[in-house]
């Protein structure tokens, strides 16, 4: 039963880069429609966790189920067999990801950025996808930027287009990897506003961020990662007002000092 309503389910996920352990047996469940914020010091493994869920990194052991897929593997008579690149790509279509550095496709227009995957990968009709793309541009507040190139946009605008690009594939899950860390302070709220709207619309989201205002406003749970492990996993009120882990207390004291 729990497996059915969980959009994300991680069991004992381990990952190391050489001798450096970045994920040390992570267990995590995210239910449909839930918004989970992950914070922690840099190097605590939070970005790697997102990249492993979306198969941008391969895990060493454990299992990841996301958006209805056993990520990176298929089960053959009880044994796990690695999937081909193309099969992994088909799984990735159901998960949207937003990056710290936006990573828009610089060689095509804003509209093409959004339409590229639905038209070329899913082979859907251009006119139908274009209608949806224009609606997405409306949603992220940039309807007049359809013909602009990414280079001509501010960081905040680029990130909103990146969100629209991910949504164009109609993902069941959205992953945000420090979406506002590369932005000038005055552009952060325009991106967070879009994310709050998305959470209200019922999207399942995992957000790695240090924006504690967003965590308070939109998160159902806040997680703290420390040294490759999850050390706190609580509803926002508990997390901020009554944290159990010493690491969380220390983290909050540092982040809320000013």
């Amino acid at each position: 039963m729990s497996d059915i309503e969980n959009v994300v389910s991680l069991k004992n996920v381990k990952k190391a880069f050489g001798k450096n352990v970045v994920l040390d047996g992570i267990d995590l469940n995210v239910r449909k429609g839930e918004v989970v914020v992950i914070c922690g010091r840099s190097g605590s493994g939070k970005s790697t966790l997102l990249r492993c869920i979306d198969q941008l990194e391969k895990i060493d052991s454990g299992e990841i189920r996301a958006a209805g897929h056993l990520m990176g593997f298929r089960e053959v008579r009880g044994k796990l067999v690695s999937l081909s690149d193309a099969a992994v790509a088909r799984q990735q279509r159901d998960i949207g990801m937003v990056f710290q550095n936006f990573n828009l496709f610089p060689h095509v227009s804003v509209l093409e950025n959004i339409m590229l995957a639905p038209t070329k990968i899913l082979k859907r009709s251009r006119s139908e996808v274009e209608q949806e793309a224009l609606a997405l541009l409306e949603k992220v507040g940039l309807p007049d930027k359809r013909n602009a190139y990414p280079r001509q946009l501010s960081g905040g605008q680029q990130q909103r287009i990146a969100i629209a690009r991910a949504l164009a594939m109609k993902p069941k899950l959205m992953l945000f990897d420090e979406p506002t860390s590369a932005l000038d302070p005055e552009m952060i709220s325009e991106v967070l506003d879009v994310m709050v709207d998305l959470s209200k619309a019922g999207m399942t989201m995992i957000v790695v961020t240090h924006e504690m205002g967003f965590a308070r406003a939109a998160a159902d749970r806040v997680i703290l990662m420390h040294n490759a492990s999850i050390v706190e996993d609580a509803v926002p009120q508990e997390f901020f007002e009554n944290p159990k882990s010493e690491h969380t207390k220390l983290f909050l004291s540092k982040i809320l000092q000013h």
Partner: peptide, 19 residues
């Protein structure tokens, strides 16, 4: 980052290369 972004929207190797 372009490799990451094209993987993330579900492109396989050939699609990442050509598109």
């Amino acid at each position: 980052g372009q490799e990451d972004a094209s993987r993330a929207v579900g492109m396989n190797w050939r699609e990442r290369m050509w598109l």
